[in-house]
Design a protein around this nucleic acid. Structure first.
Lengths: 259, 259
DNA sequence: TCAATGGGTATTTTTGAAAATATCATATAT
DNA sequence: ATATATGATATTTTCAAAAATACCCATTGA
């Protein structure tokens, strides 16, 4: 068994080249950029990079559900040590993207139809309520952000429609950003954060249905935008429920989820 | 500045004595108990113990909001090394009980009135919906668990009423278990887990109001039990909303939250 | 007087190895 | 033949020290 036994997809792995590794003893240059972004800086530490990478690999299916995450095997491809890997896995375990069982290591969280339906129900509950509050409180700046997010999404949807399936990740990011923009004025960071977390779980299930759902989803996005500008939350919640339900059925229709 | 500069409360700290530390090379005894509880075993590792301890110290206020969590200072009282501490802090950061900013270490999450209201709103949203579904699906076994949980809570409430304020933690645990029992039949583990997480955040805010809210809360718990047995979710949701709202106002009434 | 610079200390972050534990194949006894 | 013990191997978990970074304070120059 080689080191890479559990790795399916290498495309995104962090590359050694070009990164200021600790071995290259570069001159100490005091960074002024830190003062420009005083807080909320993501911190480009190896641990952060590995965290984002592994999280993305799980959400986008590169790390297959149920896969055992061997520390010794994964430290090389992700360019970190076992301790740093453990920190990452602990964070992801809190987010339920990986499961940690006793002293038997970590696994990528398994998938099941039941869990998917629970995640979908949770997303609908959170997003519908956030939508309602956001529509009530949103100002012109919010409207502008919504329009902007929809513009990016619709352009990407047009590409997908045209058969360009090479940029699924970018497309899904715009999808998430559009739904995030819709609820951005809800006034509760706690609610938005919970929504984002459950949205990414929802996303992971969508990835197994690689095929583009097509014009239907595109239309629903456009109608959600119209509702937002007209502040019609009743219709928006209805569309959202249908949007999520259709996603679930379309995804489950592939029959790739055995349980 | 001594090692214990940031520690406020030592009552709960893990004690060396009696624990099977790695230094006492005990005889290898094959444990059969592991097969009785095949999965879901909490694993009594030092990391797990420290995690539960620190989490509890944050929720119950022993670690004051905003406190800087210095690794070197805290490894001694919690009886773990810095790496293990970092794993714990990373988990707690995912749960938002601590904040990790860049390369500047960890802090106990700060508190604010705004955040408290968001947490309360989130709890109401999740609990009200879970309540509705649980009332629809609950069977006799569920009813029995609810009655049992309420019995334990009401006995503890009677003690508190009598002036015994020494067991706040046990009382709050029963409070949480009662509300957990009410929604246990909702059918969604995702929902229940999200509820438990937000409930503990809510709990942390309640702790600053050390005084017992008294007969009012006790009555509301009894009425929630009656609603459960009669499957009257409409009234239950109303009571719950009042229950949470009263908790928020009572807690904020102390004026201890500046922001 | 104030901002910028430099060096020394404190703290975090990462690492590789030691200790503890689980896993697996083999042998032994019932 | 099944089940239980035994030992070798693989893996996880923990630790302490090295490396990188932030922090503090005196000093210098404008």
């Amino acid at each position: 068994m080689g080191i890479f036994e559990n790795i399916i997809y290498f495309g995104f792995y962090r590359s050694c080249a070009g990164l200021p590794g600790r071995l290259e003893t570069a001159k100490k240059v005091p960074m002024k950029a830190a003062e420009i972004v005083p807080s909320e800086a993501p911190a480009e530490t190896p641990g952060e990079i590995a965290y984002r990478q592994i999280r993305r690999d799980i959400v986008f299916g590169a790390l297959v559900p149920g896969t055992r995450l061997r520390l010794e095997s994964l430290k090389a491809p992700y360019l970190v040590s076992v301790s740093t890997l453990r920190e990452v896995f602990n964070r992801l375990a809190s987010e339920r993207f990986v499961v940690a069982e006793g002293q038997r290591g970590f696994h990528v969280s398994p998938v099941s139809e039941k869990h998917f339906r629970e995640v979908a129900g949770m997303r609908e509950l959170l997003e519908a309520n956030a939508l309602r509050q956001s529509f009530e409180r949103g100002d012109l700046e919010w409207e502008a952000q919504v329009v902007a997010a929809h513009h990016k999404l619709s352009r990407m949807e047009a590409l997908m429609e045209a058969g360009d399936c090479t940029r699924t990740e970018a497309w899904k990011r715009y999808d998430g950003e559009f739904h995030g923009a819709l609820i951005a004025a809800c006034g509760s960071k706690v609610l938005m954060e919970a929504h984002r977390r459950i949205f990414d779980h929802f996303l992971r299930y969508q990835i197994v249905a690689v095929v583009y759902r097509g014009k239907a989803a595109c239309d629903e996005h456009r109608r959600l935008l119209e509702c937002a500008l007209e502040r019609d939350h009743e219709t928006a919640v209805e569309i959202l429920a249908g949007h999520i339900e259709a996603c679930v059925e379309h995804t489950l229709g592939n029959g790739l989820l055995k349980d």
